[in-house]
């Protein structure tokens, strides 16, 4: 059998064959491992960012401090290229001998997730229905009780929407980290481009997009249960007359919740 014929029989001829043929993935490792790496990097970064940004933004918004910071953060986050943040962290880590993974990438992802989380939490808590806050204050709740029992619940829909944007963005950027020597699903894309293997590139793209979309979908599903009951969209036939009003992003400067794919 000639070499060309051999190649024709063993080389995959489309992306589905590539995905099914594990011998093609000897360089970059198998799919579940890579997907798991991407996922845990993203989730860890998201959790750190949320733990830092949401409480801070909520407290500052309750006391109406540093109002400009949230718009500034969004604008700064939009202007600084994602590529730079990842590259800078990896370079610093390499020069200090911590290697490519996982800390530089996780820290870069944390930094990327901060602006949308912070500014949307701030807007949401600030714009929580003033009537409800006034009523709570009249009932004698302390400031922190107002924040925890009135403002944060009213702000949940917008905070969760922002979290969804943030975590999708984080997964997308984790894939980008493969350009800077990280592992994860993005490696199939970079290796595929380096080896001029179209099917590997396509498979990588499908996997990355699939992971981002499934995370988005899972978050969308979770959102439906985490939003307090009175704020959920009720079925049309039994819509109550008086309903609590969830906070909508009304600030003209941040209509898209921030975040870049």
């Amino acid at each position: 059998m000639s070499l060309a014929a051999l190649l024709a029989t063993t080389e995959p001829t489309n992306v589905w064959q590539w995905l099914n043929d594990s011998s093609e993935r000897t360089v970059t490792g198998d799919i579940p491992t890579q997907a798991w790496t991407t996922l845990w990097h993203s989730v860890l970064a998201f959790v750190i960012a949320a733990a830092a940004a949401i409480p801070l933004a909520a407290v500052l918004a309750h006391f109406r401090k540093a109002e400009v910071l949230s718009t500034w953060l969004v604008n700064i986050g939009r202007v600084i290229p994602t590529v730079t943040i990842v590259a800078v962290f990896v370079i610093i880590s390499l020069r200090n001998g911590y290697g490519f993974e996982p800390w530089p990438i996780v820290f870069a992802l944390v930094l990327l997730a901060l602006p949308p989380l912070y500014s949307n939490t701030y807007t949401a808590v600030r714009d929580a229905s003033p009537e409800a806050v006034g009523a709570a204050r009249a009932m004698g709740l302390t400031e922190l009780q107002i924040l925890r029992r009135v403002e944060l619940p009213l702000a949940t829909p917008l905070i969760l929407a922002a979290s969804r944007v943030a975590i999708t963005q984080v997964v997308a950027t984790e894939a980008l980290a493969a350009l800077f020597g990280g592992t994860g699903l993005g490696q199939y894309i970079t290796f595929g481009i380096a080896n001029r293997d179209i099917y590997e590139v396509q498979a990588g793209a499908v996997l990355v997009a699939g992971l981002a979309m499934s995370v988005d979908l899972v978050f969308w599903f979770v959102t439906r249960f985490l939003v307090p009951k009175p704020l959920r969209p009720a079925p049309a036939n039994r819509r109550p007359i008086h309903r609590l009003r969830p906070v909508q992003p009304i600030n003209r400067n941040t209509p898209s919740l921030g975040g870049t794919p």
């Binding site: 793209a205 981002a212 794919p261």
Partner: peptide
């Protein structure tokens, strides 16, 4: 908007 840009670039370039 959810599709990561690196994936979209990579798949379109093929």
């Amino acid at each position: 908007y959810t599709i990561p840009s690196i994936a979209l670039f990579a798949v379109l370039v093929t």
